[in-house]
């Protein structure tokens, strides 16, 4: 419905929009919310988008019952280690991936419904001192983990039944990988950012580390969110959670940087800043839109191609937003 409403404005490009509350999920039984995500779920031949909510000790699956009304289908209890985040698996059906740990991720589990046993269950995919994890299309999960001596970067091919079908080791860079991003339009390419402020590129099929490209010294601690390959260039959306406020821009929220993988050179394409006087926290990117929770508790949304903040949702009476 929302897509249809937006279509008439598309020929002129997106305009300033306000955010509208569509529906609420009320869970009286769980403690504070840790994360929220969506998952495709197929039941009785019908594939629909469902919502997953996470608290520290449980994940709940919600189905739409009627407009503005959601019902809880099932709750997985994970009491031994706290839940840190839900790891989205794009285009994957009937699988929820979750990262658990104390301060850092210590294990990754899959939550699923088993038609064989007609029961909901969870299975362990990976343990270790995990620094970054990303879910890719076609049930692939890539993570970086660290021991005192070395860093391991690994891709796990997940099975429909919650196991791991295959594992591919990727060549690790010297610096710790801080984030991964799938490359739209190139199934076998993966990019990552490192603690040394570089962008690295892998070939997922062979595990080769193809290129390491420095982001530049102006902005430290870059985190990659999305990457797009076009016309021989690699466009990477970066955020800089620790960027200081500058006179020219204010506080930086996202940057789109074009890399030429052949030469390793880069150029800034567009940047998006926080509204004046605001400070930001974690952000995320979907297609050409970026969103971030501000320290005020509001949510801001940007059109990354125009470098414009298009909407801001102030904190509600119940408190701050999470993203």
């Amino acid at each position: 419905d929302v897509a249809e409403q937006l279509t008439p404005v598309l020929p002129d490009g997106p305009r300033d929009e306000s955010l509208q509350l569509v529906s609420e999920l009320k869970d009286c039984s769980c403690s504070g919310a840790v994360d929220v995500s969506t998952v495709w779920w197929e039941a009785a031949g019908c594939r629909e988008l469902r919502v997953v909510t996470a608290s520290e000790s449980a994940l709940s699956l919600w189905e739409p019952l009627a407009p503005d009304c959601w019902g809880k289908v099932y709750t997985w209890h994970l009491r031994e280690i706290p839940v840190i985040q839900i790891v989205p698996l794009p285009d994957t059906c009937n699988l929820v991936c979750v990262a658990l740990g104390e301060l850092e991720i210590g294990e990754i589990r899959l939550l699923l419904y088993s038609s064989e046993t007609d029961s909901f269950k969870h299975s362990l995919v990976k343990t270790g001192n995990i620094k970054a994890v990303v879910g890719l299309k076609d049930r692939r999960l890539v993570s970086s983990s660290r021991t005192v001596q070395e860093q391991q970067v690994e891709m796990v091919l997940l099975s429909e039944t919650g196991g791991s079908k295959d594992r591919q080791t990727l060549m690790p860079p010297e610096e710790t990988v801080t984030a991964f991003a799938e490359v739209e339009g190139m199934r076998e390419a993966l990019v990552g950012t490192t603690a040394g402020n570089s962008v690295v590129v892998w070939n997922l099929k062979t595990g080769q580390l193809l290129r390491k490209m420095h982001v530049g010294y102006s902005y430290s601690a870059s985190i990659c969110h999305r990457a797009y390959s076009d016309s021989g260039l690699l466009f990477v959306v970066l955020s800089h959670p620790h960027a200081k406020e500058s006179e020219s821009c204010g506080s930086l929220a996202f940057r789109v940087v074009a890399f030429n993988p052949s030469t390793g050179r880069s150029a800034g394409v567009m940047f998006s800043c926080l509204p004046p006087g605001r400070a930001g926290r974690r952000g995320d990117v979907w297609d050409t839109a970026g969103a971030a929770v501000l320290t005020s508790g509001a949510v801001a949304v940007w059109d990354l191609l125009r470098g414009r903040c298009t909407a801001e949702l102030p904190p509600g009476p119940a408190g701050r937003w999470a993203l």
Partner: peptide
């Protein structure tokens, strides 16, 4: 961004880098 700033662009960069990179 201009092509000169980024150097020569190759549409086949992925295949070319895969052929050059250590296995």
């Amino acid at each position: 961004c201009s092509e000169s700033a980024l150097g020569p662009i190759s549409l086949n960069w992925f295949e070319e880098l895969s052929a050059e990179a250590p296995p």
